[in-house]
Amino acid sequence: MPSLVVHYAFVGLLAATLLGAAFDRRSLLLSLVVVTVPDADAFIALVSQFGHRTATTNLVIPAIVAGVLAFDLYAREESYVRGRWGAYGVRVAWFCVVVYAVGHVLFDAVTGGANLLWPIHDEFYVVRGKLELSSQRGIVQTFVEWNGGNGANGGGGGGPSLRSIGNTSTVQMDTGVDPTPGKREPENVDRIFPVARGGWQLYLLVTGTLATVARFVVGYDLPEE
């Protein structure tokens, strides 16, 4: 599971490449705050089973925010966001929706699982698989598996099988805040707050941080000849 600082590095990399002229200290700080919000459920887990990677780590929240933002921008005669912050505010607002969904929720889904549709549907999903090119088998991928067999009318086919790892009654994810979810915490419990678990996380942490710093230093303007 990626640590919060790895999320920060990833969002910094996204901001440096996607925000364009809207990239500045204010937009970067706001996006870092937004990507922190999903981890609030680590504290909710102390008092509820709908805790880590559930209560705030889901796609329902950014979907609602996106709907409200779209209504304000495209359905109202005078948009509040556009009227107060202009094109800068519109771009940053949409970017923050992306940050919440892609920079944290879906990132968690590929690194251990997340309750993506809670509270509409209580189920943890994880993205696992491989994609490769074989000289004998051609393109091989296992991210989406198609269920064969006979359908209701005797035909073949089927649909994609989702990879579920359980729901909130069977899955409780530990954190440094709550290292023994659902159990009595021993006095000498070891609270682990990860920084980088694995070489790829360290690589992303360093690369994302350097790219963000470089964006501030270099910018997009070419030097004068």
Score class of each variant (00 low, 15 high):
157 G>V: 01
7 H>M: 07
94 W>P: 00
61 I>Y: 07
155 G>D: 14
36 T>E: 11
42 A>C: 10
8 Y>K: 01
137 R>W: 02
118 W>A: 09
106 L>I: 08
74 Y>K: 11
72 D>Q: 07
3 S>P: 10
164 S>I: 03
34 V>L: 08
9 A>M: 06
53 R>I: 06
95 F>N: 00
67 G>Q: 07
170 T>L: 03
71 F>C: 06
176 G>P: 01
122 D>K: 06
79 S>K: 01
70 A>G: 05
116 L>N: 11
153 N>L: 11
99 V>I: 14
225 E>P: 13
130 K>I: 07
109 A>W: 04
61 I>R: 04
67 G>H: 03
189 V>Y: 02
56 T>Q: 03
36 T>H: 08
139 I>G: 11
92 V>R: 00
7 H>G: 00
49 Q>M: 10
10 F>P: 00
225 E>Q: 11
199 G>E: 11
209 T>N: 06
25 R>P: 00
60 V>Q: 07
88 Y>I: 00
80 Y>D: 09
89 G>S: 03
31 S>A: 15
217 V>W: 08
178 D>E: 10
9 A>W: 01
174 D>H: 03
12 G>E: 01
82 R>H: 08
199 G>W: 13
84 R>E: 08
220 Y>N: 12
140 V>N: 06
144 V>I: 14
153 N>V: 03
135 S>P: 12
51 G>L: 04
134 S>E: 14
215 R>C: 00
223 P>N: 10
146 W>S: 12
24 D>S: 03
190 D>N: 09
77 E>L: 03
132 E>H: 12
31 S>F: 05
219 G>D: 01
138 G>I: 03
82 R>P: 02
185 E>Y: 11
160 P>C: 04
114 A>K: 02
220 Y>V: 02
52 H>Y: 13
98 V>A: 06
162 L>W: 08
224 E>P: 01
121 H>N: 11
8 Y>G: 00
172 Q>W: 02
91 R>K: 13
58 N>R: 00
175 T>D: 12
5 V>C: 09
11 V>R: 10
26 R>K: 13
28 L>E: 02
113 G>Y: 08
139 I>K: 12
209 T>M: 07
49 Q>N: 10
185 E>R: 14
151 G>N: 06
160 P>W: 12
171 V>I: 09
142 T>F: 01
50 F>Q: 05
224 E>N: 09
55 A>I: 01
130 K>Q: 14
31 S>Y: 05
147 N>A: 13
118 W>K: 08
55 A>T: 02
61 I>K: 05
5 V>T: 10
90 V>S: 05
37 V>M: 15
48 S>A: 05
175 T>C: 13
167 N>S: 10
198 G>L: 07
178 D>S: 05
177 V>P: 00
52 H>I: 06
19 L>S: 04
23 F>H: 06
109 A>I: 02
112 G>C: 08
90 V>P: 06
164 S>F: 06
16 A>R: 13
105 V>G: 04
139 I>C: 12
41 D>V: 03
148 G>F: 01
62 P>L: 11
130 K>W: 12
112 G>S: 07
59 L>A: 10
22 A>L: 03
36 T>I: 11
16 A>I: 04
125 Y>K: 09
118 W>L: 12
203 Y>L: 13
178 D>M: 09
112 G>Q: 09
20 G>R: 05
83 G>M: 11
184 R>H: 13
103 G>C: 07
206 V>P: 05
86 G>D: 04
225 E>S: 10
